[in-house]
Simulated scan of single mutants.
Amino acid sequence: MASETVLLTGSAGFIGFHVARRLLAEGRRVVGVDNVNAYYDPRLKEARLAALQPHNAFSFEKLDLADRDGTARLFDEVKPGTVIHLAAQAGVRYSLTNPHAYIDANLVAFLNVLEGCRHAGVGHLAYASSSSVYGANGKTPFSTSDPVDHPISLYAATKKANELMAHTYSHLYRLPTTGLRFFTVYGPWGRPDMAMWIFTKAILAGQPIQLFNHGRMRRDFTYIDDIVEGVVRVAERPPQPDPAWSNLNPDPAISNAPYRVYNIGNHRPEELLHLVDVLEAALGKKAIRELAPMQPGDVAETCADVDALARDVGFAPATPIEVGVERFVAWYRDYHGV
């Protein structure tokens, strides 16, 4: 990946922005693509892009990847060696009210990316999946060897569909693909629709915060730098067919095709109530807590088994939430001038 062009989708997004910065710092040539939609304030996305634009090795294409012809043209022009596909319609609750956005962004666009990779002879497609695919799975920690056949949100269903589609292309066309199941990512330049941002904004404004499942939700909060480290290491290692795979006792995370799935999580779930305690300490201000029941599509706990990631790429996320939250709060205060 060192001397080739990396096509990075979702480059104006939270994770995509940080991955772009890392690749550019390592001297890689990066072509970013994003539709800069209004799912959340586009000004944040534009600010991320503005921070990337000074790099001579970075170029940007504004494009909706659901545009079949536009995506095919992009691949033909860029001829990437590696594709890191992070563009997606995110969010569990939003999928309850805007389901068609997930079909367009997560299924139609993903097929267009797969076709682009196939025809361009891409050496490796690494793409974002999600811990949400574990759905109704009650076993923790979540392992990539676990069955994930019972999603409980449309968002999760589209991410599982991405893994199935990727395997098909790995099998039919020998396209190396790796799915990355992210676990509750947070940090500087994060998304305004996520708990870390929502809670911080409300606490500073003296407004109440809602704690679903009466604050007993447990999440495997994973700091952005750890996510980036995992993404970059995985992207550098196209998977090979795994000789351990057997159709008599198949492991869904591996294959006799060049296909792999990994968890990237902190493998240390934290209760929502503890997160609020840590935020209060970092902000120097108490929260007004409102306890609320579980929401449709949510799960009570997430926890990542990252043994396979550690074994194959020599890395496992480990940033304590106390450290990550302090860094996020410092960035938030600076960005908003509060």
Rank of each mutant, 00 (worst) to 15 (best):
S95T: 03
V234R: 01
R174G: 01
A244I: 03
D305V: 10
L74M: 13
G179D: 03
W197P: 07
T140C: 07
G284P: 11
H267S: 14
E271W: 01
P42Q: 09
A50W: 04
N98W: 09
V133N: 02
L7V: 07
F212Q: 14
A87S: 15
D305P: 15
G16P: 03
A195Y: 01
R327L: 14
H336M: 09
N37R: 06
L279D: 12
R68A: 14
P141N: 10
S145H: 14
D305Q: 08
Y223L: 04
T9H: 08
I198P: 00
V276F: 12
L172R: 07
Y186F: 07
P151H: 01
G116T: 12
H124K: 03
L52D: 00
F183P: 01
R327S: 13
N98T: 11
V325R: 10
N112Y: 08
A12M: 09
E270C: 05
R260P: 00
L86H: 00
G123C: 04
G13S: 11
G27D: 08
G284Q: 14
V83S: 14
N137T: 06
M217V: 06
H167G: 10
R21K: 13
A88M: 07
A318C: 09
Y134P: 08
I264L: 02
A235G: 06
K139Y: 08
A120V: 03
